[in-house]
C-alpha cells in the first residue's frame, strides 16, 4: 500500500508542476507589467498589494461573505426540497410530467438571473429576495438532473423487479432512488455554484450587505484593491461550497464516486 501511495504522490507532484509554474509565470508577468508600464494602483494593483489588501480587510470580507453564504445555503436548501418533491411527483404521474416538464425545460434555457430585479421590487433589500433568486437558479439543474435520474433506469432492471413481483413503491425506493442519486449530486454541485452567483447578482441589483454589495461599493469607489480581494473571497467560497457538496456526495454514494472514471464539467457564469 505504502509504495503505491508514494508513487501516486510523486505522479501528482509532477502533474502539479506545470500549472504551478504557469501560475508563477503569470504572477511574474503581472508584477513586471506594473513595474515596466508603471501602472497606478487604482488601475491594476500588484499581486503583493492585493494579497496584503485581502488580509488587512479579512474581517470586512468575512462578515459580508457570511451574508452571501447564508443566502446561498438557504436558497440551495429550498431548491433541494422543492426539486426533490416536484421530481418525484413528475416521475410518478405521466400527466403532470407532460404538463410541467416542458415548461421547466423552456425556462431552463432563458437568462434566469435577469429576473433578479423583480424579486427586489417585491421583497425589498433584505435577505429574502436573494434567497429566492438563489433558489430560482439552483432549482433547475437539481430538478432536471433528479428527474433524469429517476426516469432513466434501464428497462431490464424494471423488468427484473416486475418479474420478482416488486410493488411500484418498492421499485421506486430500491431502484429508482439509488439510480437517481448520482444525477442528483451532479445537479447539486452545479446548483451550489449557481446559487452563489444568484445571490451575488441579487446583491448587485439592490442590497446593503454581502460580497456582491462589496463589489458594487468597490466599483463605485474605484477601489480595485477591494475588488480583487472580493474576487479572492468569492473563489474561496465557491471552491468551499463545491468541495462541501463533493464531500457529501463522496460519503453518500461512495459506490458511485469510486467507479466514476471522469469528473463532470460545469460551466457557470
Amino acid at each position: 500500500m505504502a509504495p503505491n501511495r508514494e508513487y501516486k504522490w510523486t505522479i501528482g507532484m509532477k502533474r502539479a508542476l506545470y500549472p504551478i509554474s504557469t501560475t508563477i509565470l503569470i504572477l511574474f508577468l503581472w508584477q513586471m507589467s506594473i513595474v515596466l508600464f508603471s501602472l497606478p494602483e487604482f488601475i491594476l494593483p500588484s499581486p503583493f498589494v492585493v494579497i496584503r489588501a485581502f488580509f488587512s480587510q479579512l474581517n470586512l470580507l468575512f462578515n459580508h461573505a457570511l451574508v452571501t453564504l447564508y443566502e446561498t445555503i438557504a436558497g440551495l436548501i429550498l431548491a433541494i426540497i422543492f426539486s426533490v418533491v416536484i421530481s418525484i411527483i413528475i416521475v410518478w404521474s405521466k400527466g403532470v410530467e407532460k404538463t410541467i416538464l416542458p415548461l421547466v425545460v423552456f425556462f431552463q434555457t432563458t437568462p434566469k438571473i435577469a429576473i433578479a430585479p423583480l424579486f427586489i421590487v417585491w421583497f425589498g433589500f433584505g435577505y429574502t429576495p436573494k434567497i429566492i433568486i438563489s433558489f430560482w437558479v439552483a432549482y433547475f439543474p437539481i430538478a432536471i438532473s433528479m428527474i433524469t435520474g429517476l426516469r432513466d433506469v434501464e428497462p431490464e432492471t424494471i423488468d427484473l423487479t416486475k418479474s420478482m413481483s416488486a410493488t411500484t413503491l418498492q421499485t421506486f425506493i430500491k431502484v429508482r432512488i439509488p439510480n437517481s442519486l448520482p444525477h442528483f449530486f451532479s445537479g447539486l454541485k452545479l446548483g451550489g455554484l449557481v446559487a452563489m452567483l444568484g445571490s451575488i447578482t441579487g446583491e448587485f441589483v439592490g442590497s446593503d450587505a454581502g460580497l456582491g454589495y462589496l463589489i458594487v461599493m468597490a466599483n463605485h469607489n474605484h477601489d480595485v484593491k477591494l475588488l480583487f480581494s472580493v474576487l479572492i473571497a468569492l473563489v474561496i467560497m465557491g471552491r468551499t461550497i463545491y468541495a462541501l457538496t463533493g464531500w457529501i456526495e463522496k460519503h453518500t454514494i461512495s459506490w458511485h464516486v469510486a467507479m466514476r472514471t471522469e469528473e463532470e464539467k460545469f460551466f457557470t457564469a
Binding site: 500549472p19 504557469t22 501560475t23 503569470i26 474576487l231 468569492l234
Partner: peptide, 19 residues
C-alpha cells in the same frame, strides 16, 4: 500547462470580474 489553469479559471465567478 494550460488545462489545469483553465479548469481553475473556470471556477472563478466570472460575473465578479465583470465589475
Amino acid at each position: 500547462m494550460v488545462m489545469p489553469l483553465m479548469v481553475f479559471l473556470q471556477t472563478i465567478p466570472k460575473i465578479g470580474i465583470a465589475a
